[in-house]
């Protein structure tokens, strides 16, 4: 499943009402993504559909560690409300979710801080290249990847992670899978 930036439900795009500016909505898409991840895990979607996987597209990723630290902490105190959630939410995210890197909330000027964030989310394992085409296009694909990444990490983000996640190396043909 792809969880793509945008959409309209009739509800305000925030939990506190309609924002004034588009820029707030753009920034806030990260909080929409957080709400959806919380919902899918808390409702037991991945306990019912154990092979389901989801990609969060164009909503950034640097918010992930802080979000999971809070979500895991709350789960430890409140898990009896959702006892089908048998593991910490972060473990579900690691197994079931991927995130596109471009366009994203990277600050090229702060590689050390960014690396700390990436260290706190299992390295580059969950990151997939996203072009943003035709909206917010990344001109050079390499620019979508943190500048300080090593060659193996770049390869992961630009190719390897997506190959594995989308099973791109399996034989083609509708109905031929599995």
């Amino acid at each position: 499943m792809s969880l793509q930036y945008g959409g309209l439900t009739g509800n305000p795009p925030t939990a506190v009402g309609w924002p004034t500016y588009l820029v707030e909505e753009w920034v806030g898409m990260a909080t929409v993504a957080q709400s959806q991840i919380m919902s899918m895990i808390a409702e037991g979607v991945f306990d019912r559909f154990r092979d389901l996987r989801a990609v969060v597209v164009e909503a950034g990723f640097s918010w992930l560690p802080a979000f999971l630290w809070r979500f895991d902490k709350n789960w430890k105190g409140l898990r009896r409300e959702v006892p089908w959630v048998r593991r910490a939410p972060s473990e579900y995210v690691r197994e079931h979710f991927r995130f596109t890197v471009g366009p994203a909330d990277l600050q090229p000027g702060e590689p050390a801080a960014l690396q700390h964030v990436i260290d706190d989310m299992w390295g580059a394992d969950l990151l997939l290249f996203g072009s943003g085409y035709p909206h917010d296009v990344v001109a050079r694909p390499r620019d979508a990847v943190p500048g300080h990444f090593s060659d193996p990490e770049v390869e992961q983000v630009m190719s390897g992670n997506a190959r594995a996640f989308y099973r791109l190396d399996e034989p083609a043909g509708i109905g031929g899978r599995r």
Binding site: E43, G44, V45, D47, R48, R80, P83, W84
Partner: peptide, 11 residues
């Protein structure tokens, strides 16, 4: 002990 055999079910 609150446990569950699946979403929406409580033991």
């Amino acid at each position: 002990a609150v446990s569950s055999p699946g979403p929406g079910r409580y033991d």
